[in-house]
Computed example of a mutant assay.
Amino acid sequence: MRCGAAAVMACVLLAACERGAPDANNTPRDGVAPRAGADAQPAAEAAAPAAPPAAALEDVVETAPTHVVGISYPKTISGEPGLAVELKRYADRQREELAKAVAGRGADAPPYDLTLSFSQVYESPQLIAVAADGSTYTGGDASRPLAARFVWLRDEDRLLTAADLVPDESNWTRIAEDVRSQLRTAYAQRIEADGMPAAERSAATREAAKRIERGTAAGATHFAMFEPVAGPGGRIGALRFVFPAAQLDTGLHGTHTVEVPADALRPLVAPQYRDLFAAPAG
Score class of each variant (00 low, 15 high):
199 A>S: 12
200 E>P: 01
200 E>L: 14
200 E>K: 14
201 R>T: 07
202 S>K: 14
202 S>D: 13
203 A>R: 15
204 A>E: 06
205 T>A: 14
205 T>K: 12
205 T>Y: 00
206 R>V: 11
206 R>Q: 12
206 R>T: 13
207 E>P: 00
208 A>T: 09
208 A>Q: 06
209 A>I: 03
210 K>L: 11
211 R>F: 08
212 I>E: 05
212 I>M: 09
212 I>N: 06
215 G>I: 11
216 T>L: 04
216 T>Q: 01
216 T>R: 01
216 T>K: 01
216 T>E: 00
218 A>D: 01
219 G>Y: 00
220 A>L: 07
220 A>Q: 04
220 A>I: 00
221 T>L: 08
221 T>V: 09
222 H>F: 08
223 F>S: 02
225 M>K: 13
225 M>R: 15
227 E>K: 08
227 E>N: 03
227 E>W: 00
228 P>Q: 11
228 P>K: 13
229 V>D: 03
230 A>K: 14
230 A>I: 06
230 A>S: 15
231 G>V: 10
232 P>D: 15
232 P>L: 10
232 P>I: 08
233 G>W: 11
234 G>H: 05
234 G>S: 03
235 R>E: 13
236 I>G: 05
237 G>A: 08
237 G>Q: 01
239 L>V: 05
239 L>A: 02
239 L>M: 11
240 R>L: 04
241 F>M: 02
242 V>A: 01
242 V>F: 12
242 V>E: 00
243 F>Q: 04
243 F>N: 07
244 P>C: 03
245 A>P: 03
245 A>I: 05
245 A>M: 01
246 A>S: 14
247 Q>D: 01
247 Q>S: 06
248 L>V: 14
248 L>E: 07
248 L>N: 10
248 L>M: 13
248 L>P: 09
248 L>K: 11
248 L>A: 10
249 D>K: 13
249 D>T: 02
250 T>I: 08
250 T>G: 13
250 T>K: 04
250 T>A: 10
251 G>N: 12
251 G>I: 05
251 G>W: 13
251 G>Y: 12
251 G>M: 05
251 G>K: 12
251 G>R: 10
252 L>S: 06
253 H>F: 10
253 H>D: 13
253 H>A: 13
254 G>K: 05
254 G>D: 04
255 T>V: 15
255 T>W: 09
256 H>I: 02
257 T>Q: 11
258 V>C: 06
258 V>A: 07
258 V>S: 07
261 P>I: 09
261 P>C: 06
261 P>Q: 12
261 P>R: 15
261 P>T: 09
262 A>H: 07
263 D>H: 13
263 D>N: 12
263 D>W: 11
263 D>V: 04
264 A>D: 09
264 A>R: 15
264 A>W: 08
264 A>Y: 11
265 L>Q: 07
266 R>C: 02
266 R>S: 03
267 P>H: 02
267 P>V: 01
267 P>T: 01
268 L>N: 00
269 V>E: 04
271 P>A: 14
271 P>Q: 12
271 P>I: 11
273 Y>G: 02
273 Y>F: 15
274 R>L: 03
